[in-house]
Design a binder for these strands. Structure first.
Lengths: 143, 143
DNA sequence: CTTTATGCAAATATTTTGCATCAAA
DNA sequence: TTTGATGCAAAATATTTGCATAAAG
């Protein structure tokens, strides 16, 4: 976590932004919250540490964390925005069980390769991508 | 379009739902609207044909069309929900220019194959997936 | 007739913004 | 000090719902 925090501090410093106690708390809670937290959920957790933090600050800080490369937005298409911590540097794709919500993350280099190739064929330079596979896991298929 | 309309009529009949003039108009406008229309945009277009159609009806009908397999929700992660017509039966993936919004659709069988394989390895049965590649197109790279 | 659909407006839900105040450097 | 950050409440967005009325079958 120190590496990520350093990244955050560096980002703030480079952009002449202040490191405030709210940003400190929100970062800590976000970073240790596990996967796929929504702004609302994050706010609830943050308030346990400091009940005076406003919801708007959570939204604003999530945007900061995203710009700093510490959080990324994930979208399960359920109308709620969610964020996840960028552990390591590599992005990943998602394999999600529509029944129980289980979320397996993976990176497949062959797919990434084909994606690059495909983009090149169309004259594109890729900057990012998102891929979600939806289905049913073993447990939910054989209850 | 007749095939799709038949599909819609059949769906309505099978579910004992009425075929109303509003549903007729909304279907027509949606089907000929081109890609990636939002409920709001669709409503605006529909109102040109019949100013009395309510926005709620557009939302409700889009849900119907989705259940009927005629529309599908696409999500560009920009906070607005969008729908596209299911031309043919095959799904497709998206290659999107973040600069100009150009949207190229494609299907790559090798990727689909790997996805299936990947899912199987994790004990999943796939039902659907979404894949978006974001980048910059030639024109936007060399203005 | 009976059931389903509609329009409207109100209700929800989510996120953003204006602004007076507060804190950091 | 000076600049940027915060909390709050209001505003903006996006979508859903309750209900009286209207249309379909």
């Amino acid at each position: 976590m120190q590496a990520a925090k350093d990244q955050f501090l560096l980002y703030l410093a480079r952009n002449k932004l202040n490191f405030t106690s709210q940003r400190d708390i929100i970062f800590d809670v976000f970073w240790s919250s596990g996967y796929h937290i929504s702004p609302e959920e994050l706010w609830q957790l943050v308030k346990k540490h400091d009940p005076d933090v406003g919801q708007a600050t959570v939204y604003r800080t999530l945007k900061l964390l995203t710009d700093a490369g510490i959080a990324r937005e994930v979208d399960f298409g359920d109308g709620v925005s969610r964020y996840e911590a960028c552990f390591g540097q590599s992005h990943h794709d998602h394999l999600i069980c529509k029944e129980c919500g289980k979320n397996i993350e993976f990176v497949n280099h062959k797919i990434e390769q084909i994606q690059e190739e495909l983009a090149r064929q169309h004259g594109f330079t890729l900057s990012e991508h998102s891929m979600y596979l939806f289905g049913k896991c073993t447990e939910c298929r054989n209850p």
